[in-house]
Design a protein around this nucleic acid. Structure first.
Lengths: 220, 220
DNA sequence: CAGCATCCGCTTTGATACTG
DNA sequence: CAGTATCAAAGCGGATGCTG
């Protein structure tokens, strides 16, 4: 990207990050950790292959990304954020918070990826589920290109991009009403109207909609 | 900007904000409040006039910017952030924090504007100057296209883009060592070596370098 | 198959000139 | 002051081909 030529921290950041696709590459690496070139292409539908290669080279030159040879059994390159790159998390978090009101509806030809949704859930569900006693619970989501498992334990919510043998609750349907249900914006009845089906114990949702103690507040 | 077509909050934000110059326009409006078209051009050196007009139209259509007719004596249009636009402050703050390490040196042909520096100072000096008793102090900076006055009071630092009749301390010189001095990264001797001169009571700087109680920590 | 590089048509941007 | 108009240059998207 052509430099803005300004002695200003915002402009200097955008000199590095402002090109098309660049911040989405950082999103991929934050959400999934080390990625192969092919994984990145899958998470960036529509990117031209030459642009991905060029952006990775630029980010490496700027000290945001490093490439490493994967351990012996696997013969591939892994792209990973440097410590400096990890420090971009507050930027991506702020963009996620601001963008939430724009998620009203998934256009029919929008791409959806489980790890995008999982990262947003992890951000917004931090600070929920205050530490009650009692067992941990699991919720499995079927809404994108792969399953997501939410694990609720004392004081924390974790996401994983795996399936679970016997979740306490399984939710399936389009992403928007599932997100709405988990974030407490939709009731079960409303989510059902919009295509969400479930199997299991709906009462575990109450642990998610408990008063928020910390973390970013999604705007109204 | 061409949409990324992703059902992801980051991508949706970048659909609105990702065009070249767009986030810098938001920076201008956050740092200075309502601006005339001409003020924006001054704060965005190098922008093509047609691009500024187009970006403002796009941001207005997205509900980020509103235009208002200035009160009667002045016959001009004012551009201002909407409430939704104001909510971008955390995004700009995160970019400012991340970009600070890139401010090592002002290139000879970098543009510098007082309101960019003042906004960064206000961000990083929040939480400094714990509430001691004693009078308030003022520091005047001469480092860019106009004076900046810092006012230190109990528990807060305020910036203003004005001159002060009799500041407790006046600093003049290139922006980088002045910022370094105020943020506690450079000693007075180091700043002097790099071209900073002063007039007045240097001890007021100690109030700025007191332990930080809150606010973003600029990275090492 | 993973990780690119090249080519080409299209879109966006930059620089300048011009207008109500 | 607040924009439009114009046109060359740069950037991007999509397809294809190359190399281990």
């Amino acid at each position: 990207m052509r430099s803005y030529g300004e002695y200003c921290a915002v402009a200097r950041s955008l000199d590095v990050l402002g090109d098309r696709w660049t911040l989405l590459i950082v999103r991929e690496l934050l959400a999934r950790g080390g990625c192969r070139y092919t994984d990145l292409r899958h998470g960036l539908p529509g990117i031209a292959s030459n642009l991905l290669a060029e952006r990775l080279r630029d980010l490496e030159a700027e000290g945001v990304v490093q490439r490493e040879a994967a351990p012996p059994p696997i013969a591939t390159t892994l792209f990973r954020l440097t410590a400096r790159g990890e420090q971009l998390r507050p930027v991506l978090n702020a963009l996620t918070v601001w963008g939430l009101p724009l998620m009203g509806r998934a256009e029919p030809d929008d791409a959806v990826r489980s790890h995008w949704l999982a990262a947003a859930l992890e951000l917004f569900l931090v600070g929920r589920t205050p530490d009650e006693a009692g067992p941990s619970h699991t919720i499995e989501l079927q809404t994108a290109d792969g399953p997501i498992t939410l694990t609720l334990e004392r004081g924390s919510v974790a996401t994983a991009l795996v399936s679970t043998p016997h979740p306490d609750l399984a939710l399936a349907g389009p992403p928007m009403p599932i997100m709405g249900l988990l974030l407490g914006r939709l009731t079960v009845a409303q989510a059902h109207e919009r295509g969400v089906s479930w199997d299991g114990d709906l009462s575990v949702l109450d642990r998610l909609t408990a008063p928020v103690l910390a973390g970013p507040q999604p705007p109204a």
